[in-house]
Nucleic acid binder design. Sequence first.
DNA 1: TCGCATAATACGTTATCCATAATTATGAGC
DNA 2: GCTCATAATTATGGATAACGTATTATGCGA
Lengths: 222, 222
Amino acid sequence: MPARIAPTALYQEVAERLRQRIFAHEITPGTWIDEQKLADHYGISRTPLREALKVLASEGLVELKPRRGCYVTELSPRDLDDIFPLMALLEGRATHEALQKATDADIAFLAEIHARLEKCATENRMTDFFEANQEFHKKLQELADNRWLLSVIQDLRKVLKLSRLHSLSLEGRLAQSLLEHRDIMAAIQVRDISKAEKGMYDHILAGREALAKMRTAPQPSN
Amino acid sequence: MPARIAPTALYQEVAERLRQRIFAHEITPGTWIDEQKLADHYGISRTPLREALKVLASEGLVELKPRRGCYVTELSPRDLDDIFPLMALLEGRATHEALQKATDADIAFLAEIHARLEKCATENRMTDFFEANQEFHKKLQELADNRWLLSVIQDLRKVLKLSRLHSLSLEGRLAQSLLEHRDIMAAIQVRDISKAEKGMYDHILAGREALAKMRTAPQPSN
DNA sequence: TCGCATAATACGTTATCCATAATTATGAGC
DNA sequence: GCTCATAATTATGGATAACGTATTATGCGA
């Protein structure tokens, strides 16, 4: 008895599970997805699975090659170079729109999250820092209250998760990341929109550069 | 005997046909899509149709309400206000990246298209102007050579097509649009990236404003 | 070893059926 | 006559089996 609260369709649930497996690199980029086998594995028929794959395909997580099946998307360094500036632009814009609409209470709430960020950094609690960081960005996007902007950002964020390096990139630059966040938060507090926007833009781009630097040392796959 | 070169899947073809029908407002926003009826109409089974609908849903052209069926997306003025600045940002960025990568030959080719634009404007040939305009934007995006940026722009462009006013917006401001294009082209010719980017940004936003103004007069639906 | 015919595999699609949820119609009770 | 609960209807979401066909793998002969 699943006793689901949310009666989401099966294909959506399967899509979500696949997403998680792809993000966790349980299914590595480039690998072929056997429809029948996967359907059997989940104990479902091919129909909802195929629908789920179409959803993932439009998110860019997998690629559907006609008559040749479904493959998990592989991100090249080139793709990262293409995506990061785009993300920087979009997250910058989200910050812009968020600050336009934010009440003082909203800003206070952001400050709260930022305080947690500071605390986690001091205590060197990586996981919590990571989480608070995500929450900060998420809250900003929520304040921007632009569903189109939001969906674009979220889609690209999903794609970035294909790169296993991504989540690691923060670790090496926790201190630096904190400084950048501090700048952004300061700009937000004085409601300097363009400064906050630029701060976010630079913050995201810095993430890309950190990632580029570590590409020589920890080579994950062959 | 279709003798297709590209053996696109049926669900893709159906998706494309539906797109065209939605763009042409043959199926108006808000209307419910009867799966069985549509499948019968195209002489296909429900399976590929449902897959097609999932693709359209992730493009934002239709909305899938769980257990309640599929509805063509309705754009509110609010949505337009959300999307246009985003498009402006993205097309601006595309112009930026295009100009970074463009050879002199590429710029010459853009100039050619622009010349056609000028000519069509002088002769007041609306349809051709419209087409050349599209080609100009398309060429820029192609030069940007960033598949992620491209796909985001194209998706949003599709969504904008839901608004029947959109294509009309050019008509009323053909002269103004030409002037803006002239500015952009000039910046491109001297390779002034930031000026070209800003020119494109303003150009798109001007489209939104023109559209807002005409909303009082030609009210299409109730 | 290479080229080509054959077999195997799996995708894309059809058709049919079913359970469930949403909608509408119906009818009892006040 | 109106409200509310129940029943009938309808459509979605999913399962299953089957089939044509394009792709890939295999094997045979030259």
